[in-house]
Design a protein around this nucleic acid. Sequence first.
DNA 1: CAATATGGTAAAATGTTTTTACGATGAAGT
DNA 2: ACTTCATCGTAAAAACATTTTACCATATTG
Lengths: 158, 158
Amino acid sequence: MADLTANREHTEGRLHFIQQLRNPYATLLLRLHRGLSDAGYADSFPSWGTNIFYCLRDGGLRLVELAERTHTTKQAMGYTVSRLEEAGYVERVADPKDGRAKIIRITQRGWEMRRLAEEIIGEVEEECVRRLGEERMRQFEELIKEVSTVVAEATERE
Amino acid sequence: MADLTANREHTEGRLHFIQQLRNPYATLLLRLHRGLSDAGYADSFPSWGTNIFYCLRDGGLRLVELAERTHTTKQAMGYTVSRLEEAGYVERVADPKDGRAKIIRITQRGWEMRRLAEEIIGEVEEECVRRLGEERMRQFEELIKEVSTVVAEATERE
DNA sequence: CAATATGGTAAAATGTTTTTACGATGAAGT
DNA sequence: ACTTCATCGTAAAAACATTTTACCATATTG
């Protein structure tokens, strides 16, 4: 996968808009990757690694559901889960309600990584609040939410 | 690659911040991919495809420079460029200044795709302006720029 | 208790990135 | 000019990841 952090200031024209949206996300992701790697959570990546943690909660999810939410196939997700399982971040447990299914759950190590991730992101977020002030940060969050909605609607409509 | 559009509303806690930053970008990217695919530019993808167009300008760039700007290796970029070359989006021409180097340039077809990309993104951007109003859109752009700067500084410092 | 749908895995094929190595040109120092 | 070293790009194999096709086991339906 090409690095998302690429080419910060090389764009002009209308493409600038997508770059504007991309830069903070890409940079924060980079910060997150580095922070986790430095703390010994280096094996959670190749692009998909953390993604799955956004989905999983205490209860866990079945493979198919996880695949749906991340828009991949169950086979691809099976592969991902196996890698994360090897690294000790998730585990598969039999679903008591359905003999076919298995529940993918975050392990203790997984939760620890997730907690660190939250901490890293929290720090950056707080730095933003310090620099922009609470009021403007609130404005930003409101505006980006609106932009997000408009973009989503434009995408779904088409 | 796990789909960037994954799991829009499944996150809580501090991870929410990164999702906030991700959603509009991811969705716009999806919109862009679809729009280009629908128009017959389907072969420019597997993740890196358009990325490189953010970098390239009229003059073109050498492979190593392209690799640096996208934070990949020259080998990986060589592969990418070969695929794009096959699809007719870019071409390699000898660098008159340096016998070793080749300049990667966007072809006519490449420029046409880029123009469509700008058009698609421009439409979405204009829809945002219509919905938020010019004043608030200006605010948004200012704020996201500031956030971007703060995140970048936090990332570089560490 | 068949027929069909769903959850998951297996294995091969495909696609992409990394690793290691190399040949060609250029730059710098002698 | 001649050697030495750096840089630009490619090649080929290995590693990694995703897609495709197929399959088994369990569940659900009628």
